[in-house]
């Protein structure tokens, strides 16, 4: 069975699940929170160019996404993907099929990555939509015309690469232990710790949960490092996780 067939099976499992809806809900929530915050906070008109107003809105949304919502999103998505198998004791059925375990686990990792990419691709569209709402609610904010879409996409796609390290760790934790609570607690704890560690110039650039935020730090100078470490760490943890989970026993 090739990987494509396994991926199709994985996608079928997602039908009608919260995991799929979260791709819309998570970025939508960040956009809504930021738009409402701006609508109620800015009392005076802002004297900036429309392009700068768009970028100001985008940076506010993208930073909140990278700092808070992205780690929580990946925590929940990883836990939900794993719970689909843990909850119904699916492993004993899946691993009694003539499909190599590493292929099934690789498909799981690819699906989680695809969900991250889907949410990230939706983000600029939702920023544009949020900007449209803000034009109605707060004309004085300075938004006008159409948003600079290319400039909205690049930073958010860079966060995808930076987030892979965190994604692989979260997925490993969620798959290795049956407890949904343990997976969520790990992600939430690591996210909260990231509030402090992420601000540290010494440790922040190495902390997986803070890497997406590094994309926006130092006027973009930290982005190459964050993307490189995110990709390398993500692949390393994914390979280890798949190797470990392929070899382990399934006594329950």
């Amino acid at each position: 069975m090739n990987l494509l067939a396994v991926l199709r099976a994985e996608l079928l499992k997602l039908r009608g699940t919260l995991a799929l809806w979260m791709c819309l809900i998570a970025p939508g929530l960040v956009v809504a929170m930021t738009v409402l915050q701006i609508a109620f906070r800015f009392s005076k008109p802002v004297d900036i160019e429309p392009h700068d107003a768009w970028m100001m809105l985008a940076r506010a949304i993208e930073s909140l996404w990278a700092f808070l919502m992205l780690p929580l999103f990946l925590t929940l998505e990883a836990a939900l993907l794993a719970a689909v198998e843990h909850g119904n004791q699916q492993w004993k059925h899946l691993f009694a099929l003539p499909v190599p375990r590493y292929r099934q686990l690789t498909a799981k990792w690819l699906v989680l990555t695809a969900l991250l990419i889907a949410a990230s691709l939706l983000m600029p569209l939702l920023i544009a939509l949020g900007g449209g709402v803000l034009m109605l609610l707060k004309p004085g904010f300075g938004l006008a015309g159409s948003p600079p879409m290319a400039e909205l996409y690049w930073p958010i796609l860079k966060t995808v690469a930076a987030a892979l390290f965190m994604l692989s760790i979260q997925l490993f934790v969620a798959l290795n232990w049956r407890s949904f609570t343990a997976a969520v607690a790990t992600g939430m704890g690591a996210t909260v710790a990231g509030f402090l560690i992420g601000q540290s110039a010494r440790f922040g650039p190495y902390y997986p949960w803070a890497l997406p935020l590094q994309i926006f730090g130092g006027d973009g100078r930290n982005a190459p490092w964050a993307m490189s470490l995110g990709l390398a760490g993500g692949l390393l943890v994914a390979v280890f996780g798949i190797w470990h989970l392929s070899r382990r026993e399934y006594p329950e």
Binding site: A9, L12, R15, A96
Partner: peptide, 25 residues
């Protein structure tokens, strides 16, 4: 094989459950 009770995806239909294994096989 059927090991220790059914392993099924309750949010999917019976046909979709079979379709997952069919694709894998």
């Amino acid at each position: 094989a059927l090991v220790e009770g059914p392993s099924l995806y309750p949010h999917l239909s019976g046909r979709q459950n079979l379709d997952i294994s069919r694709r894998l096989l």
